[in-house]
Design a protein around this nucleic acid. Structure first.
Length: 187
DNA sequence: AATCGGATACTCT
DNA sequence: GAGTATCCGATTC
């Protein structure tokens, strides 16, 4: 992460979502003490046709219009949970993949798979591994059960096009840790 | 590569 | 109220 960026949680997220998405790579995230290092993110903004906030506030996306540094958790395809970090109103960063570090056995139990590479490689998978559900929607990232440990090293971050979209497909708002085997898909 | 699951929201009618 | 699409993953082909 860049040295001039605040490591205080509320300040870190009160910035442009694209910058936050890039700077989150390398940050350790845990939920109730289980988690790992963020290796893949995507940014979404209010003027982005692919963003849930694009067409205004609804009961589902209300957290996205709240204050920065809170969680926005939504149900995807009726089955999976997806975890976002809210930045400025209507903006958020989707957490797409983690490198598992803490609580590997708990994650294996929750996921029902042994292979560490498959524990958190994808937004739905990491929510299952970290037990993220709707009850964390709107919760502060600066308090339990969340814990963030920002990276202080200089790391190689790569960027590319976002995944699974039909609108604004050519925005290069996906970020990843270069060379990580824990990405959901190659860049 | 194709299919399906089944919540939320939008678009008509 | 029906029809379609969606920030995906597991399973089957």
């Amino acid at each position: 992460m860049r040295g001039d960026v605040s490591r205080v949680v509320p300040e870190f997220f009160d910035r442009d979502a694209v910058a936050v998405a890039a700077d989150l790579i390398g940050t350790q995230l845990t939920v109730n003490g289980v988690g790992g290092v963020i290796v893949e993110t995507e940014a979404y903004t209010p003027d982005d046709p692919a963003s849930h906030s694009f067409r205004g506030q609804t009961p589902r996306n209300a957290a996205m219009f709240g204050i920065p540094a809170h969680a926005y958790v939504y149900r995807s395809y009726g089955i999976h949970w997806c975890l976002n970090f809210v930045c400025r109103p209507g903006s958020a960063v989707l957490i797409r993949a983690l490198e598992p570090r803490v609580g590997l056995e708990v994650m294996r139990e929750r996921r029902g798979v042994e292979n560490a590479r498959l524990l958190c490689a994808g937004p739905g998978r990491l929510c299952q591994a970290l037990a993220v559900t709707a009850d964390l929607d709107g919760r502060s990232l600066d308090a339990e059960p969340f814990a963030l440990d920002f990276d202080t090293d200089t790391i190689a971050v790569i960027r590319g096009t976002r995944i699974g979209l039909t609108k604004a497909v050519d925005m290069d708002w996906r970020f990843g840790l270069q060379g990580s085997p824990f990405l959901s898909r190659k860049f």
